[in-house]
């Protein structure tokens, strides 16, 4: 019964929330309309979502979001300093390879997005077998240290969330 009515509970919640934000009105009428959309749309489109990611450890998710938000602020200040006070040619930018332990596509997507948003790194490409991520660093003096930091700070937490 639950599977038929709400095939994708997180999507239902998300659509309802987006509807409420779009309407910018949190009255009961809009909550009901949002719920109708939130239950109807996943049912119609559930054919396109054959596999659902397993998401666990809600506390780790909160921790992860806070860590990433903090890193975004720090990275902005760092990049602003590099851009304003260093010559462009003097930046030691290089490509590094980050070997992946994650296998879930959602987890790899989240990791790639996080890397792009955080200190001086942009994810560039994924290897054809999905085992390694190509990352470009703006200014780095210890490539191995950067790889270790990415793995410890983000990948370990994502592993606990998605697996």
């Amino acid at each position: 019964m639950r599977k038929i009515l709400v095939p994708h509970p997180i999507l239902t919640l998300f659509i309802t929330l987006v509807w409420l934000l779009l309407a910018n009105d949190f009255s009961a009428g809009h909550v009901v309309l949002g719920l109708i959309l939130g239950i109807g749309i996943p049912q119609i489109t559930s054919v396109y979502w054959p596999e659902r990611p397993k998401i666990g450890a809600p506390l780790v998710i909160v921790e992860y979001v806070l860590v990433v938000l903090w890193d975004i602020i720090v990275s902005n200040v760092q990049v602003a300093r590099l851009v304003l006070f260093h010559r462009g040619d003097a930046l030691r930018s290089t490509f590094i390879t980050v070997p992946l332990e994650l296998t879930a596509p959602e987890a790899i997507t989240t990791l790639a997005g996080t890397i792009t948003m955080t200190p001086g790194t942009v994810s560039t490409d994924l290897s054809a077998d999905g085992r390694a991520l190509l990352v470009h660093c703006l200014d780095v003096d210890d490539p191995a240290g950067t790889v270790a930091q990415i793995k410890a700070r983000y990948e370990a937490r994502l592993k606990r969330i998605f697996e």
């Binding site: 490509f95 490409d125 994924l126 290897s127 054809a128 077998d129 085992r131 390694a132 190509l134």
Partner: peptide, 15 residues
């Protein structure tokens, strides 16, 4: 300039 992937497959865009 790209580094190797660490396995026999190349980067997805260029493979």
């Amino acid at each position: 300039k790209l580094p190797p992937t660490g396995s026999e497959k190349g980067w997805a865009t260029l493979d």
